[in-house]
Design a protein around this nucleic acid. Structure first.
Lengths: 271, 271
DNA sequence: GCAAAAGTGTTTAATTTACACCCATGC
DNA sequence: GCATGGGTGTAAATTAAACACTTTTGC
């Protein structure tokens, strides 16, 4: 993910590198047509026990009036020394711009690359290749979000009513722009897979949470209920692994008050 | 993955679409700098019970003389109606060009997108965003491969000697160009994960094969031996699922002849 | 006969699933 | 006291792991 570097070498190697440096100084890129590259964001959250996705209403052609995923162009420099921003950085920046979240709050937002979509014709204006990301936003941040300063411009939509093929056919109204339905599908599939392989579930609950708050998240994402007892057992195992720790206090509920836990911020390691 | 289409609509909808058509006719893209987009291929095979990857020796700057992953530019049209080739198509084309395989034989090669790499500076010449794919090539096709018509130009290298961090530090000689070591790591990780989640294992054995030939593939990819009895049991379960069927004949071995099986070409379905 | 690998079976442990039941609290 | 959901335990079922043993061939 970082710039390729070579060790300063022996005499022969150094000569090679001088040679390469001269080559680079004289290098002029060709004039072949290039695509535009964008990042598209599938921003998930769980509120009211339902999985939701952030969509923006297109105010311009093409697909004027349709819902679309937030996103935008990756900033590219025209100097070979200043080549612009990283893809992850572009995704973060777009998230900031589209949600109005501050730099510090959005730093805590989980972002993961999904896949790249580049079929010719997916944007009728020109060739656009789009790197898709999904993001997970804690429900506690939702009130802070003001989509680009324009409330009517963006909304949280129910994934269940959007992602099922049946619902999609029925709902002409919510047909997405471009190939964004495909992107949403891919993001949802990857996010679901990641949910029961890693600990991203904690990215969708407040900093401290009860077991059933976490279970509600899993149920919302999977779209089916989970056995409370069994879920609890699996959860408690992750305490042994040091991923979780008990937090102070209790959370009052409709019945017996529940213990609260806290996610121990990990090393960002992943396969 | 296909072009976004809209249904021919009612009166209002049709008016909208006329409007959009006029917009597109008048559309002129901006003059912002754009990145080059390439596909890079991590081509795997298993020969002699070892996982190997196809690398090409760079004959030009930068990284002249180093091993690199095969790959090349995605062809992009400059007309909004003719936008060029799909990413998958570009990967297939590059595979053809770099291996010399015919269109028909390479059609049977498994290709899967890994991730997109776009860190600024990863190519010192200019901003290059690269969509990484991994490919699985049956050992029976290996003899047909002539890397770009130049034998000294390409070679199969042992992944075990390339991918382990220890080996990598020791082997200055085989340090890869650009960020291709990162790409190889990511491709290997995804391929390993796919191996015990899907049936891609069959892409690395001949059309008909024995159980231990398949086991040898799994062992090579995972880098550790597997219990023959247990592997057999898991394998036989996939007969029930209709993924496999018994083939005619036996394969002579060093000892008792082994039964051969055949992979039943499936629907390309995946979770 | 002997080595070597195919092929089969058994035993044990670990994990998942289903479900029963007690406990503390608000009302 | 009683409904509600928190919290705990257990038994059955499924899956995974370890390993012993029998069979069929080449030499």
């Amino acid at each position: 993910m970082k710039t390729a570097k070579r060790k300063p070498g022996s005499g022969e190697r150094a000569e090679q590198e001088d040679d390469e440096e001269r080559f680079l100084e004289g290098y002029r890129p060709g004039v072949y047509p290039r695509p535009s590259v964008t990042v598209d964001l599938v921003v998930f959250t769980v509120t009211d026990r339902r999985l939701q996705v952030l969509l923006v209403r297109r105010s311009e052609h093409p697909f004027k009036g349709r819902w679309a995923l937030p996103g935008g162009f990756v900033r590219v420099g025209d100097d070979r020394k200043a080549q612009g921003e990283d893809l992850d950085a572009a995704a973060h920046r777009e998230l900031l711009e589209e949600t109005g979240l501050s730099h510090t709050t959005s730093a805590g937002v989980f972002l993961e690359q999904v896949r790249t979509f580049g079929a010719p014709g997916r944007d009728p204006r020109m060739r656009v290749i789009s790197v898709a990301y999904y993001a997970l936003v804690r429900p506690t941040l939702i009130p802070l979000i003001r989509a680009g300063g324009d409330a009517s411009h963006a909304a949280w939509l129910d994934v269940a009513e959007l992602a099922s093929p049946a619902a999609r056919r029925a709902a002409e109204r919510t047909e997405l722009a471009f190939d964004h339905a495909d992107i949403l599908d891919a993001a949802l599939a990857k996010m679901r897979a990641d949910l029961d392989r890693t600990s991203i579930g904690f990215e969708l609950v407040p900093e401290s949470f009860t077991i059933q708050e976490l279970r509600a998240v899993h149920e919302a994402v999977r779209g089916e209920p989970l056995d409370p007892g069994n879920f609890r057992k699996r959860f408690l195992r992750s305490i042994e692994d040091g991923v979780i720790e008990a937090a102070r206090g209790k959370r009052p509920t409709a019945s017996k008050p529940a213990s609260v836990y806290r996610f121990v911020r990990p090393r960002r390691g992943d396969g």
